[in-house]
Design a protein around this nucleic acid. Sequence first.
DNA 1: CCGTTTTCGGTTTTT
DNA 2: CCGAAAACGG
Length: 711
Amino acid sequence: MHTDDFTELLNPLNAAQREAVTAPLIPLLILAGAGTGKTRVLVHRMAWLIQSGQTRPHNLLALTFTNKAATELQNRIGRLLNNPASGLWAGTFHGIAHRLLRIHWADANLPQSFQILDSDDQLRTIKRVVRALQLNEKTWIPKQIQSFINKQKEQGLRANHVVAGDNTWLRQISIIYAAYEEICQKSGLVDFSELLLRTYEMLRDNPEILNHYRYRFQHILVDEFQDTNTIQYLFLRLLAGQHNHLFVVGDDDQSIYSWRGANIANIQQFPQDFPKTRLIRLEQNYRSTQTILAVSNALIRKNKERLGKELWSEGDKGVPVTLYRAFSETDEASFIVHRIQQWKGQYSDIAILYRTSAQSRVFEEQLLVKGIPYRIYGGMRFYERAEIKDALAYLRLIKLRNDDVAFERVINTPKRGIGEKTLEQIRSQARRHGYSLWQATLSLINEQGLNTRSINLLQAFLSHIEQLTEQTQSLSLARQVKYIIDYSGLIEHYQKEPKEEAQRRLENLDELITAAHQFTDSGKDGLDPLTDFLAHAALESGEGQANKFDDCVQLMTLHLSKGLEFDTVFLCGLEEDLFPHQNSIKEGNLEEERRLCYVGMTRARHHLILSYTESRYQYGSRISCRASRFLNEIPRELLEETRLCTPTTPVYEFLTSPTLIAGQRVKHEKYGEGIVLGLEGEGNLTRIQIQFLKTGLKWLVAAYARIELID
DNA sequence: CCGTTTTCGGTTTTT
DNA sequence: CCGAAAACGG
C-alpha cells in the first residue's frame, strides 16, 4: 500500500494545506476558513498517514456531523487511494456512537434490539410523562422540557446530577427528566443525545472496552470541530487518551449552532487540553472573488470572540457586491426573480438565502408564476412523515415489544376502537407495575380488568402483532416492509382521507418499500437487516442537505446553506429584528447572527446580491423595517446600490376562462402536460391546482399561468 | 368517535 | 394572518 511517491498526494496542496497534511503526530487544530479546502485537507491527511506507512485504514476514525459529509469523506478517500479503504470508520458522531452501542449493548445496559427516538418521538414521550405526572402542560411545556433534557445530556448530566437546591422549577423539571429516563430505559429507547451520552458512559465505565478502541483508533479526525458539544468533546478526549492523535478541523467564524449545544469553547480549550497542539490556519480561499471576501472579512471582523483569520484570494476582484432596497417583501422578490430571469447560466447555480423559512413563500409564488424551476430545502423529511412513521412503528414493535412510543403510535392507528379511556387504563397499569405498555396490556387481559369489548379488541391487537412477527420472520427486508404495510391496515386507513392526500401517502408508503429494497444492509457487526434499516431511518432521515440534481433555483435558510457554494447568492431580508433576529438580539447572540451572515456571504463565487425591504407583512399586519446593522458594518465603497428596474405592480389580466374546470387537460411551456384538479379564489387571484404528468402537483396563479387548453 | 370551534404561537434544526 | 393542535360538542 505505501510508496515513497507522494507527488499526487501533495501537489494539489498549497503550503498551509501541505503543512497540515504532513504535520507530525502531535495534536493538530486546523482553522479552515470558508472555501479553503478543509475537506481536501482531511482526506489528504488520512491518505498521507496511510501511504507514508504510519498507519492503516483500520486505525483511523473520522467523525462528522452530517451523513452527507461522512459519505463524502468515505468516497473521496476511496478515490484518492484507489481503494475503498475498508476498515476505516467514517461516520457522524451519532452514527459511530450507535455502532458502538450495537456492539456493546449489554455493557451499555440496553436490550439488544433497542430503538432510536427521533426528536418527534422524544417530544411525544415527554408529553406522556408530563401527563402521567398530572402536571399542567401550560406550565410544564413539553418543548421546553425537551430542550432542557437535551441540554443536560449534551453536558453529560443525568437527572440525578441536576442540582435543584431550593429552585422549585428545577426540582420539578428534574423529576420529569428522571421519569423520562425511566420510560426510555424500560422501553429500550434511546434518543439522539442519549446515543452520545450512553456511549460516553459505556466507554468510561468499561476500561477493557475503552482500551480496545484506544488501541484501534490511533488517529481520530474531526470535521466541523466548532460544532461539537460538550459530550462530544468529552467523548473525543476519552477515546484519544494520552497517546492517540487528534486532527481536528473547524472554523470558529462559522459556528452557527450554539443553540443546539455546539460549544465554541471547545476550540479555545483544545490547545490547553492537548499540550503541544499545533494550530494551522487555512486562509487562502478558492471560491469567491476578492470583493466578496473583502465584504465578508469586513463584517466578521466586528466579532470580538474569535481566534482571528482573514481570507484572501489570488482570484479576480470580480464585480461589486450589490445592495437592493425594496419597498415591500413582494418588491424584494420581484427584483430577485427579475434578475434570475436575466441569468444565462444554470438555475442550480443560484441560491436565495433567508433567515427564516417563512420568507420563502413570496419567492415561491413569484417563481411559480414566472415558470422558473425552483426547489425549497428544509421542511418535512421522508422518514418524518406520519404515514412512514406509522409503518416504522409496526416494524419497531415487531422487533421490540416494549417500545412504548411505537405502541402508542399504532394502538389505534388504524382505528380499531381502542379509545383514550382504555389506553389510559393501560398506561396507569404500566405505571403501577413498572411495565411497558405491551406488558401492561397483557396483564390487563389476564386479570380481566376491563370490559369484555376492550379485552377482545386488545387481544386482537396483540395477536395481530404476534402474527405479523411470525409471518415476516423469514422474509427479506423489503418483503417484510411490504408485508407490514399491506397487512397493518394502514392503506385502508389512509384511503379514507381526501383523495389527494391519500394518494400522496400511499405513494410514500410505496417509496418506503423501494427504500427498503435499495437499502444495502451494511451487515456490520452482525446486525439483522430490519434493525439496521430502522436505525438508518432514524439517523439518516434523508435529503436534509441540498443536492442539485435538477436544474432548479435553490431556496434555503442560511443554516442549511453551510458547506455549499453557488455562483450567485441572493441574501435577502437584511433587516433589523429579522436578521439579526430580534430573539437573538434579546438573548445577546449577536455574534452568532453575524457569523450566520458571514456564512451566507461566503457561499457566493461571483455574484453576491444583498437586499432588504422597508416594510414587511408579519402576523397579519404590515410593519416597517430598518436596514440591518450588518449592512452598516460593510464599507460603503464595497457596495453598489441598485435601483428598481422593473415595475413593482404587475399588470393583471383576467385569464380565468369559464372553460377552466377540474378535469380539464392543459399544457404549460415549462411543466408540460397536466390535469386541472381544482380552482381557488376569485378574479385575478384565482389559483389553479394542476397535476403535471412529469413535474408533479403545482399551484399556479391563473392570471399569470401560461397554459393552453388541450383536449 | 368523529368533525367543528377555539386557542395559541410563529428563528435557526447537522443527529 | 395562518396553520397546528387542543378542546368541545353532537
